[in-house]
C-alpha cells in the first residue's frame, strides 16, 4: 500500500512547478509559479484569501490545465487532462468537503471504486484487512470499529478516513485543502499527527492552511502565495510567524527584499531539506 515510496531521490524533488500560470478570463489567478515539492516532507501553502492557493492545488490535481508553464513529475514533464490522470500517477487530493458517503462504513468508503472481488462477489474480508492495514500504517488508532458508518465519526476521524482513502491508492503526493479548518483542538492534533506520519513514510504532503500555528507545527517547507505569485518558498526554519504574516499580507519579506527570497522558490531551499 504505502510502502516503497521511500527511495528518496535526494536531489530531485518529486514534483516541480515551473512558471505555471492560470487565468480565469480577465482574472490572472496564478502567475509564473515555481515550486518544488520533495518526497517525505510536508510543504505548507499559505496566503491570504484569493491568493490562488485552491487554484494552484486544482492545477496540480488535474482539475485545471495551466495556461502556461510546466508540471514536472519525478523529472518528467506531465500533462493532466483530467483529475484521473493525476490520481493515476500518484497524486491524491483530499478536498475540504471530503466526499465520504455517510451511510457506508469505513471499509466501504475507503475502498469505494476499488472493491476487491472474489468469485465475482465482494470480498469483504480482504477489503477489511486492507483497510485495517492502511489505518495501522497511518497510525490511526482512534477508530475502534472500522465497520461503523462514516456518518457516526468525528470531524478529525472523517478527515483521517479521507486521507487513508487517498493514501490507499498508492499516493506519492497527498494534497490537503484546509484539513483542520473545521476541527477542534484534539481533532486538529489527530490530523496533524497523520500529516507527520505520512511524511515519515516518504510521502510528499502539500497542505493548505490559514492556521500558522498548525503550519509551524508540521511543515518542513513553507510556500507563500501573494496575489497569484509565489512570494517566497523555502525551509520553514527560514521563517517565523511574524515574517510569514508579513509575506502573506504584503508579498515582501520583513526586510523588504522580495526578489531575493523568490529565487529560493526553486531548488535553492532543498539543499537544507
Amino acid at each position: 500500500m504505502v510502502a516503497d515510496n521511500a527511495p528518496a531521490q535526494a536531489q530531485q524533488p518529486l514534483l516541480r512547478l515551473r512558471g505555471v500560470s492560470k487565468t480565469f478570463g480577465p482574472v490572472q489567478a496564478l502567475t509564473g509559479i515555481d515550486l518544488d515539492i520533495p518526497a517525505g516532507q510536508v510543504t505548507a501553502l499559505v496566503g491570504d484569501n484569493g491568493a490562488g492557493k485552491s487554484t494552484l492545488i486544482k492545477t496540480i490535481a488535474g482539475i485545471w490545465e495551466p495556461a502556461a508553464g510546466q508540471i514536472i513529475w519525478q523529472g518528467k514533464p506531465v500533462h493532466f487532462r483530467s483529475p484521473k490522470d493525476a490520481t493515476d500517477i500518484g497524486i491524491a487530493t483530499v478536498y475540504q468537503d471530503l466526499a465520504l458517503a455517510d451511510n457506508l462504513d469505513i471499509v466501504q468508503n475507503m475502498l469505494l471504486g476499488h472493491e476487491v472481488l472474489r468469485h465475482g462477489l465482494l470480498d469483504e474480508i480482504t477489503m477489511e484487512q486492507t483497510a485495517k492495514q492502511t489505518l495501522a500504517e497511518m497510525r490511526v488508532t482512534t477508530v475502534r470499529n472500522i465497520r461503523q458508518p462514516v456518518g457516526s465519526l468525528s470531524g478529525g476521524q472523517r478527515q483521517a478516513i479521507a486521507v487513508a482513502k487517498a493514501v490507499m491508492l498508492n499516493a506519492k503526493l497527498v494534497i490537503m485543502d484546509e484539513p483542520t479548518a473545521a476541527l477542534g483542538v484534539s481533532q486538529t492534533a489527530l490530523v496533524l499527527e497523520i500529516i507527520t506520519n505520512l511524511a515519515s513514510q516518504g510521502i510528499a504532503v502539500l497542505v493548505i492552511s490559514h492556521n500558522l500555528i498548525d503550519v509551524f507545527k508540521v511543515a518542513d517547507r513553507l510556500a507563500v502565495l501573494y496575489l497569484g505569485r509565489m512570494a517566497t518558498a523555502g525551509p520553514v526554519a527560514n521563517y517565523d510567524t511574524a515574517s510569514a504574516v508579513h509575506w502573506m499580507t504584503t508579498g515582501t519579506g520583513p526586510s523588504g527584499n522580495g526578489s531575493a527570497a523568490r529565487n529560493d522558490a526553486g531548488l535553492g531551499g532543498l539543499s537544507d531539506g
Binding site: 451511510n103 462504513d105 470499529n145 465497520r147 461503523q148 458508518p149 456518518g151 457516526s152 465519526l153
Partner: peptide, 10 residues
C-alpha cells in the same frame, strides 16, 4: 456511533 451502526458488529 449508535445512530446507525450495525449493532451486531459493535
Amino acid at each position: 456511533s449508535n445512530a446507525d451502526a450495525s449493532a451486531e458488529l459493535l
